[in-house]
Simulated assay, not measured.
Amino acid sequence: MNHVCGTSKIAGCSFSIHPMSEDFAEIILDSLNMVDTSKVWLDTDDVTTTIRGRLEHIFDVTKAILLQVSKSGVHAALQATYSIGCPGDSNGDTCPDESLDRMNEDSSRFIHQHLSAKFSLYPMGGGSYMDTIYTQIEAMKSKGVQVTPAHYSTRLDGDTHTVFKGLEDVFRATEASGSSHTVMTVTVSVNSPSTKEVES
């Protein structure tokens, strides 16, 4: 099928997900089959999966894949790099669907999963980038997420839906603040045995 790109600004995410299980390939493939990726361009190689499209669809798909993997109960890690406004980007390899409907929200909303994460924000092409970063870290605290300082990143603990909503809001606000190229890296852990030991 030939797609015609719309007028929306293209966002993208390159991610890898790692279930700590001998059945990792089956868990990943089963999870991908449960996620609707029709509103993003998707390509997988032996290192990462890359998706491109509207920002809401990028976050919808990455959150849905993490939630589906988490249903297996195994310890899993997600590493993701979100980007928008890259000067070297082009309209190729994408089909930013103009509709705002998130295709996985109905199937994802009933999956409740606590996660631990660390994220780093990189507003580029702007002025006082550290002020922007500090502002967005403070904003995350108001979203129902536990926020803890860490070296080279900020730690987040909370429900997957709450954390991902916070990450998306922070990403959007950073771009709106004047960052011409915004990058955010996120490392997520779910079903960690060490977390369960702390909680018990």
Rank of each mutant, 00 (worst) to 15 (best):
T154H: 00
L67N: 07
V147A: 05
K141R: 15
H75C: 12
K141T: 10
D131N: 15
L42H: 02
S90I: 01
P149A: 05
R54F: 07
L167I: 13
P87R: 11
I111P: 00
D89N: 13
G144I: 08
Q113I: 02
I65V: 15
P149K: 06
R109Q: 11
R155T: 04
G158D: 05
T160P: 01
D159R: 01
I111H: 02
F59Q: 00
G144F: 04
D46L: 12
T154Q: 00
D101R: 12
F171M: 01
I58Y: 02
F110D: 14
P96E: 13
G158C: 08
L66Y: 04
G166S: 06
K141W: 01
G144C: 13
A64Q: 01
L55E: 12
S120V: 12
S120F: 09
E56M: 06
L156P: 00
G53R: 04
F59K: 00
G85A: 07
T94F: 03
K141V: 01
A117P: 00
L115F: 03
A173D: 15
S83V: 14
G127R: 12
D131H: 10
G166Y: 03
T132E: 09
P149C: 04
T135F: 04
S107M: 07
A76V: 10
H151R: 12
S120I: 11
D101E: 15
V74M: 13
E175P: 00
S70K: 06
A80N: 11
Q146H: 11
A117W: 02
A150M: 10
G92H: 10
E105P: 00
G125N: 02
L67S: 11
R54S: 15
D169E: 15
Q79K: 10
E168N: 08
I137C: 03
R54N: 15
E138S: 12
A117I: 04
I111F: 01
T62R: 09
K143H: 08
D46Q: 14
I58N: 03
T162K: 09
G53M: 05
A150V: 09
E56N: 13
A76Q: 09
T81M: 11
V61L: 04
V147F: 06
I133G: 08
G166P: 06
S70T: 10
F110M: 12
P96F: 05
G53A: 10
T174C: 13
F59P: 00
P149D: 05
D46F: 14
I58R: 03
V74Y: 12
T94V: 14
H112A: 07
H57F: 07
D60G: 06
S179D: 00
T81A: 13
S107I: 10
L167C: 13
D46R: 12
G178H: 04
C95V: 07
A139N: 09
E138Y: 03
D106T: 10
D169W: 04
T49D: 05
L121S: 06
L167P: 01
E138W: 00
T81R: 11
S128C: 05
V170T: 15
A176R: 09
G125D: 03
V74E: 15
E168A: 09
G127E: 14
F164E: 02
D131R: 08
I58A: 06
H181P: 01
D157E: 14
A139H: 08
Y129S: 11
V47S: 11
L121A: 06
S177R: 04
G85L: 02
P87M: 10
M124T: 06
S116G: 07
S180E: 14
R52S: 07
